[in-house]
Amino acid sequence: MKKSPMKLESSQTISGVDFENYFQPGSLKEALEIKAEYGRDITIAAGTTDLFVAYYERLHTIKNWLDLSKIDELKYIKFSEKNVKIGAMTTHLALKESEELKGKFPVLQAAAADVGSPQIRSRGTIGGNIATSSPSGDLLTPLLSYQARFKLETAGKSRWAAAEEFFTGPKQNIMGPKEILTEIEVPLPKNDSSGYWIKIGRRKALVISTLNFSLVLEFNKEKISRAGLAMGSAAPTPVRLKKIEEMLVGKSLDELDHRKLGEEVKKQIAPIDDVRGTKEYREDVAFETMINALEDIESRRG
């Protein structure tokens, strides 16, 4: 039954049923031990901007909470010669404001600036965005384009997962019951690179993407030496479009047939009809977006 929007009072109040356990460890080590003990019976709270929507008026059904917000060792953006390492509890706001990220990963930064609203960006985290694994997660497409990998830790062990192997379905991923996502590592693109990001939605702010798109091209002289193309809300998971990437590599921008590439993008995605748009609409927008992206990059490179 649909709740009346004119409800007098939220049922999510202080008189509700309390959780059984609320853990707020100050270190990753403690957090991993708690996760090892509870497995799937504990819910991780990062920025909680997705969680509170998913559990609207039924927060009490979550029995055990693992709140990572006090773990300062998971909040950082560290650059080295080869890559950037980002702590999982780094907020969208911190990504948006990082000067170094602006120069080296403009597409990721533009995506972070387009998430929700200032209120959402100051709480929501990159780790939460990844672990929630929504097909429309705004940071996920740039992370696919830049070929990021994610560090998954358990008490005593860790493994790395490539972004494109991580997502398995809508809000599903390969994480095991005892694992916590702790770090995101993104290799630095070559100095000569250009990118394009766009989020399509019904309005500019506070919107879940009807479609999002990121393209990163690296150049050697004027030839494309590497391409990273990804789209969100275009398939059951955010997807990297490798076939198109292959069509771009080795060519110079003026050798590309934009319309043909746009048509190919349409073929490579598998969108659905939902409240934010139809399959047909998404395919048409994907086509246009691919053309716009190439034109935009071409005009900026002169």
Partner: peptide
């Protein structure tokens, strides 16, 4: 977290107070 009517300033940042647990 869609309307902002509950916005407060938490450690110098605007946040939606409906999406934050006090314990956090």
């Amino acid at each position: 977290g869609e309307c902002g009517a509950c916005t407060v300033i938490l450690d110098d940042k605007a946040v939606n107070s409906c999406m934050v647990l006090t314990a956090q």
